[in-house]
């Protein structure tokens, strides 16, 4: 099975994000890491590939930087990576990102595309569905368990109350929720081998886009303004005079926790 895994490089969430003041885009440093969400996708991809003697190719759109995020995923065991990196892509919204990734994936060929449900830095939560539309294949979303059997892929789709069983024939797009599996940490061998693995870098033009179709110019979506998260309010302090538990119970009941 030929598996395409979306792997987004993002600025380390442990360090505060910087937004450029004019367009409010995230400033992307050279050092970007693999979005934690995508580690689950890579893991599922590797497991499915191991079971089907298939291959895993990573797809990413972002300034390449030092490729540390991509290396991380290659070190886990992915076979190769295709990264679309081009100043012309600056300002692309989710739909444009989906168009770019879809074309790169199409060009490579695929049986299954795996993505996270929602990226950590952008959190739009729409890109995989857009991919499925563009690639004209079904989307199986919010998978918390995945089973593959010949041409069929079956998942447990997470719902607020439990899960739905969803099934589709390949090719398809699949999104996995964080925590579905325990992603392997790269072994030392994997880390050293990753150096040798092919990383193909493409520009928007390589995929047949002209500059007006991508980047801010090609995007319908733009960020009008950004408001800081309001500072957290101080909590309410309940002094215990022996009866404080009543007050606490009241609060918990109001919050519908008990």
């Amino acid at each position: 099975m030929k598996i395409a895994v979306c792997a987004k490089q993002i600025p380390d969430p442990a360090t505060p994000y910087e937004l450029d003041p004019e367009h409010h885009w995230i400033v992307r440093p050279d050092d970007q890491i693999l979005d934690d969400t995508d580690r689950y996708g890579v893991e599922i991809g590797l497991q499915l590939a191991e079971a089907s003697e298939g291959s895993v190719t990573l797809f990413s759109m972002s300034p390449a930087g030092n490729l540390q995020g991509i290396r991380q995923a290659l070190a886990m065991g992915a076979d190769k990576a295709v990264i679309v990196s081009d100043p012309a892509l600056k300002g692309s919204d989710a739909l444009v990102t989906a168009k770019v990734l879809a074309r790169a994936i199409q060009q490579e060929g695929f049986d299954l595309v795996i993505a996270g449900t929602e990226s950590t830095d952008g959190s739009a939560g729409v890109l995989p569905q857009q991919l499925s539309e563009l690639l004209e294949v079904p989307a199986l979303t919010f998978a918390k368990a995945v089973e593959h059997d010949g041409d069929t892929i079956r998942i447990h789709r997470q719902t607020p109350d439990g899960y739905d069983e969803v099934e589709a024939t390949l090719p398809a797009v699949l999104t996995v929720t964080a925590g579905v599996v325990e992603p392997r940490y790269p072994t030392f061998k994997g880390i050293m081998q990753a150096k040798q693995k092919p990383v193909e870098q493409l520009t928007a033009a390589d995929l047949g886009f002209d500059a007006t179709e991508v980047g801010a110019a090609g995007s319908a979506q733009y960020v009008r303004s950004v408001t800081p998260v309001p500072a957290r309010q101080a909590g309410e302090i309940v002094e215990d005079d022996g009866e404080a538990y009543r007050k606490i119970l009241e609060v918990l009941e109001q919050a519908k926790v008990v």
């Binding site: 940490y185 030392f188 880390i191």
Partner: peptide, 19 residues
């Protein structure tokens, strides 16, 4: 410091940390 150890050693560090 960024760049001090090199990209492979940085990944190795991350793996040992997880371990």
């Amino acid at each position: 410091e960024a760049g001090r150890f090199g990209p492979e050693a940085d990944l190795i560090r991350a793996t040992v940390r997880s371990f």
